[in-house]
Design a protein around this nucleic acid. Structure first.
Lengths: 265, 265
DNA sequence: CATAATTTGTCCGTATGTATC
DNA sequence: GGATACATACGGACAAATTAT
């Protein structure tokens, strides 16, 4: 083979913090550490990894940001292994979609394509327990149509449980991701129509219980359409004179952090 | 309303590093900063944000980990805004799926459900340019059946371009995600059957060009099945006794105080 | 209730490596 | 090579939070 054909990838130096985070992540994924276990203290980690405090802390920050650990100060504090939820994924997916100027219409289309698949799976596989849990979310909305928090939470939970009833975790996560990104894109609207939501959810559930694919799909899609409203008006603010320099300004919170000394008491 | 019904979410203190990262991320998403722009130097950021070097650096690490900036040392170094790819998402999704003991079978099922949708979209929307690009990946494999790197890259690119031909970025990203997680789960097998892959790809492409949904779908699903092989044997085994030397033994300390429950949903 | 102990959060001075001029 | 500018890394000190005693 001719020498000129060799292609080198752009090799980037691996940062120490990434290595530390990766090491812990591997330990969790391999079962060496389980959810609920605690990492050693910073002091111990510094000894074990052989890196300075700053680097170790950067690594811990990365893990915390990934949702893989939770850090807490205080006497019995420390880093506790936890199971990440989809929050970080939503952030990442949202970022990529926006930077690629993906329209909300595309997201909606993807939802409308994939939703029927989940419904079909749920109809095939939902257990009585699954259906009961779904029904409970509807009842909670009907019982508290005025409580915005409950309505939003249970409305969300309806879809989450629908995904679980499909008994395919990948499909469940994908639909959750799309739904949460959709919520990120538009401001989560006011849920004044709580009872309407409950009614739609109930009709979808009934169709699923009746094993009626067509009706369930049709109702779910109409449910999606109802959320289409504002959609097209995404804030794609033009960059106004973005000179790299004086861009950032972050307000610090109250108590002055005077770098000097503030006596304990 | 009765007072007992109020439910508080577990409120976690927002760390300064997260705030900084969030601020930069918002600036990018709002168009205030564009890909290719440079952030101020650390010293400048320290002044602007009003936080210390450590905290600013933690924030930069988070952004770097998210793929939103690239850090480079040296005279004209610094933080350059870049567009994140799916790599971080793959990591995150892979982590979640493994921790939830999701089987590769579920992932494969999701792929088999969603793949036909992409193909349908591609048949409806693919431009001659799309098809030409796809065809090129096949030819590259046929011309270099011995070059493993090229075969793997172009085989992957085939699917990526197929997603792009569907002209729905969300669907494209979702299929990419699933494919890359699938690769993470099993060791990327040897591509000895390069020409077989090329042949399958070509048959799928021909069916798409012929607007033959059924044939294209059938061939794509058979293509997926071919990768099913090893699948069921995921390495869930805890790694054997850590190597002597500098491998860190992360001890399991006592049961962590449980301030609530582990956030499952 | 108050104090002390423990652990993370933050700050800063300094040194080192690296890339550009 | 030397000078400069920048990220990377180190280590010690103090602040704040949390809990055991």
């Amino acid at each position: 083979m001719s020498a000129g054909a060799v292609k080198f990838e752009t090799l980037k130096p691996v940062k120490a913090a990434q290595l530390i985070a990766q090491r812990v992540r591997d330990a969790v994924l391999s079962g060496e550490l389980a959810v609920g276990d605690r990492l050693p203290t910073e002091k111990e980690l510094i000894k074990q990894f052989g890196y300075s405090r700053s680097v170790v802390r950067e690594g811990l920050r990365l893990l915390e940001s990934d949702g893989l650990i939770q850090l807490q100060a205080g006497r019995n504090g420390g880093a506790v292994i936890s199971s990440p939820n989809t929050e970080r994924l939503v952030y990442g997916l949202d970022t990529i979609l926006r930077l690629q100027s993906t329209t909300a219409a595309e997201l909606l289309e993807a939802q409308r394509l994939i939703e029927p698949l989940v419904i079909q799976l749920a109809i095939d596989r939902a257990t009585p327990g699954d259906l009961a849990a779904i029904r409970r979310t509807i009842e909670l909305i009907e019982e508290n149509p005025g409580d915005k928090d409950i309505v939003l939470e249970q409305s969300n939970r309806f879809h989450t449980l629908l995904g679980e009833a499909a008994h395919n975790n990948v499909m469940a996560i994908i639909t959750t991701l799309m739904r949460e990104v959709m919520i990120e894109m538009r401001y989560s609207g006011d849920a004044a129509e709580a009872l309407i939501i409950a009614r739609i959810h109930r009709r979808i559930l009934e169709a699923i219980e009746a094993r009626d694919v067509k009706a369930a799909t049709r109702r779910a899609l109409r449910h999606l359409e109802a959320t289409e409203c504002v959609m097209s008006t995404r804030p794609q603010a033009p960059r106004a004179a973005a000179e790299p320099g004086n861009v950032v300004a972050l307000e610090k919170r109250g108590p002055a952090r005077t770098p000097g000394r503030t006596p304990q008491h």
